[in-house]
C-alpha cells in the first residue's frame, strides 16, 4: 500500500473492520495532536527523556557516583560539560542517571493516583447516596491538608527513601482526580445513552466500567499530564528536604539541595538540575495541553 492510500484507509468515514475503525480514530487523534506545535515540542522532549533514561549508562560520559575531590566545583568546561559538584562528580552524568529516578517517580505516581481517583470518583458519582457521602468526605479530608505537608507526614511515618516518597505523593495526589471523575460521572450518569443501556438490562458494574470509565479516563489523562509537572516539583521538594531519594542517588531535587550552599559562587551546581526540572515540567504541561485538544470528549473531533 502506498503512503496516500494508507492515509485514505485510515481517514475513511466508512471503515470496514473493527481494526480499521480503531486505527482510524487513533490516527485522527494523532493528526489533531500534531497540529499543535507546542505539544509536539513537549512530546519530543519527553521522548528524549525516555531515551536518555533507557540508555543512561551508555550516554553518560562518566560514572555518576565517582568522586574526584581534586576536581570539585569545576565550572562547565570541555571535560565536564555542565561542571562538577561539591564532591567532584560530573553533573551531566548525574543528570542523565537522575532522569531514571524522575521517570520512575512520575510513572509510578501517574499509575497510582489517577487510578485511585477514577475508582473513588466514579463509584461515588454513580452510586450516589451514602456511598457518595462517605467517599467524598474522605476525599475532603485529604484535600484539606496541603499536599506537601501531608506527604512529609507520610514520609516521616514510613521513613525516608525514594519508594516511600513516591507512595506518599501518590496517596496525597489522588483526591483532585476523584473530584474530577465524580463531577464527570454525575453528568454522564444522566445521559440518555446510559438510560438506553439500562433498558437493555445492563448492570451497574457494566455501566461503570464500559460506559462511564472510557469517558472519564480521557480527562483524567489530560489532568495527569498537566499534574506531572507538579509531581516532579513535589518529588524534588521532598528530595530537597532530604526525605526523598537518599545520597548518593542522583535525584534532581536532592542535587539542587546539595548545591544550595554554593549557590552564589558556584551557580551551576544548583542551576543545572533546576533547569532539567524546569524543562521536563514544561514538556509535561505542553503535552497535557495537546492531549486536551485530542481527548476532550466535549469538543468532538475536527
Amino acid at each position: 500500500m502506498t503512503e496516500m492510500t494508507t492515509r485514505a484507509w485510515l481517514l475513511s468515514d466508512a471503515p470496514q473492520t473493527r481494526r480499521q475503525a480503531r486505527l482510524g480514530a487513533l490516527y485522527q487523534g494523532w493528526l489533531t495532536f500534531r497540529a499543535n506545535r507546542l505539544a509536539m515540542v513537549g512530546l519530543a522532549i519527553l521522548v528524549l527523556l525516555v531515551l536518555v533514561a533507557a540508555f543512561a549508562p551508555w550516554i553518560a560520559p562518566q560514572n555518576p557516583f565517582a568522586q574526584d575531590l581534586a576536581q570539585r566545583l569545576q565550572p562547565p568546561s570541555a571535560s565536564h560539560w555542565l561542571g562538577t559538584d561539591a564532591l567532584g562528580r560530573d553533573i551531566l552524568s548525574r543528570l542523565i542517571h537522575g532522569s531514571r529516578v524522575t521517570l520512575f517517580i512520575v510513572g509510578t505516581v501517574a499509575l497510582i493516583a489517577p487510578v485511585i481517583g477514577l475508582f473513588v470518583g466514579t463509584v461515588a458519582g454513580f452510586a450516589g447516596g451514602w456511598v457518595d457521602q462517605v467517599l467524598m468526605r474522605i476525599t475532603d479530608i485529604f484535600l484539606a491538608f496541603p499536599k506537601l505537608i501531608l506527604a512529609l507526614a507520610f514520609v516521616a511515618a514510613l521513613g525516608p527513601g525514594i519508594g516511600n516518597a513516591v507512595l506518599a505523593l501518590a496517596v496525597t495526589s489522588w483526591p483532585p482526580y476523584a473530584r474530577l471523575a465524580r463531577a464527570e460521572t454525575l453528568t454522564i450518569r444522566r445521559a440518555d445513552y446510559i438510560a438506553a443501556a439500562r433498558l437493555q438490562g445492563a448492570g451497574p458494574l457494566r455501566l461503570l466500567i464500559g460506559h462511564v470509565w472510557p469517558l472519564c479516563v480521557s480527562s483524567l489523562i489530560v489532568r495527569a499530564a498537566l499534574d506531572m509537572a507538579g509531581i516532579i516539583l513535589s518529588a524534588a521538594g521532598l528530595g530537597f528536604l532530604g526525605l526523598g531519594a537518599q545520597p548518593p542517588m542522583p535525584e534532581w531535587g536532592a542535587m539542587i539541595s546539595d548545591g544550595r550552599s554554593y549557590i552564589l559562587d558556584f551557580w551551576w551546581v544548583a542551576a543545572m538540575p533546576g533547569l532539567a526540572i524546569f524543562v521536563v515540567s514544561l514538556a509535561f504541561n505542553l503535552l497535557g495541553d495537546g492531549l486536551r485538544d485530542v481527548l476532550d470528549p466535549k469538543e468532538g473531533p475536527r
Binding site: 473493527r18 475503525a21 445521559a191 440518555d192 445513552y193 438510560a195 438506553a196 443501556a197 433498558l199 437493555q200 438490562g201 445492563a202 457494566r206 464500559g210 460506559h211 472510557p214 469517558l215 470528549p297 468532538g300
Partner: peptide
C-alpha cells in the same frame, strides 16, 4: 425505547458495532 436526541442517546466512544453487539449480548 427510542430517545429524543440522537446526539445524546449514543455513547460518544462506542462504535455502532459495539453498541449493537453489547445490546445483543445483554439480551
Amino acid at each position: 425505547m427510542v430517545f429524543q436526541d440522537p446526539y445524546a442517546s449514543l455513547h460518544p466512544r462506542h462504535s455502532v458495532d459495539r453498541v449493537l453487539s453489547e445490546t445483543l449480548h445483554l439480551q
